[in-house]
Simulated assay, not measured.
Amino acid sequence: MLSLIHAISRGSVWITGALLLLSAVLVGSEVLMRNFFHYSFGGVDEISSYIFAIGVAWSLAFTLLSRAHIRIDLIYGKLGPRWRAALDILSLACLLAVTGLLFQQALETTLTSYEIGARSNTPLGVTLWVPQTLWTAGLGFFALVQLYLLVSIVRLFIANNVRQITALSGVKSMDEEIEDEIDEAKA
Rank of each mutant, 00 (worst) to 15 (best):
I70N: 10
E46Y: 05
F62P: 00
L74H: 06
A85D: 12
W83P: 00
S49F: 03
Y39K: 12
W58P: 05
V44D: 14
G80L: 05
D88S: 12
P81E: 12
W83F: 06
S40C: 08
R71N: 12
T63C: 15
P81D: 12
F36T: 15
F37S: 10
S59M: 02
W58H: 14
I51P: 05
A53I: 11
P81A: 11
R67L: 05
W58N: 09
D88P: 13
I72T: 05
L74M: 09
S49C: 09
P81F: 00
I47D: 07
S49W: 03
D45W: 01
R82I: 00
G55H: 01
A86G: 09
A61W: 01
A57R: 03
S49G: 15
H38W: 11
R67A: 04
W83R: 08
D73H: 08
S49E: 14
K78E: 06
H38M: 09
W83D: 08
R34D: 07
G43N: 07
L64W: 01
H38Q: 13
G77R: 14
L64G: 08
D73Q: 09
I47Y: 07
A53R: 07
S59G: 13
W83N: 09
H38S: 14
S48C: 10
L60P: 05
F62D: 09
K78C: 02
G77S: 13
E46L: 08
I72V: 15
F52G: 09
W58E: 02
H38D: 14
F52C: 12
L65I: 01
I51A: 06
S48G: 12
T63F: 08
L79A: 13
G77V: 07
L79M: 14
H69N: 13
T63V: 15
A85G: 11
D88N: 15
S59H: 00
I54G: 01
Y39N: 14
A57P: 00
G77N: 15
R82A: 11
F52A: 15
I75Q: 01
H38N: 14
G77F: 02
D73P: 11
F37E: 02
P81M: 09
D45Q: 11
R67P: 04
H69Q: 13
G80T: 04
S66G: 07
K78F: 03
L65N: 03
R71K: 14
F52Q: 15
F41W: 15
S48W: 06
A68I: 03
S49A: 15
S49K: 11
K78V: 07
A85P: 10
G42P: 08
D88V: 14
T63Q: 10
L79F: 10
Y76I: 10
I72L: 07
W58F: 13
S59E: 01
L64V: 10
A85T: 10
A85I: 09
R82C: 00
Y76P: 13
I51M: 02
L87K: 07
R82Q: 11
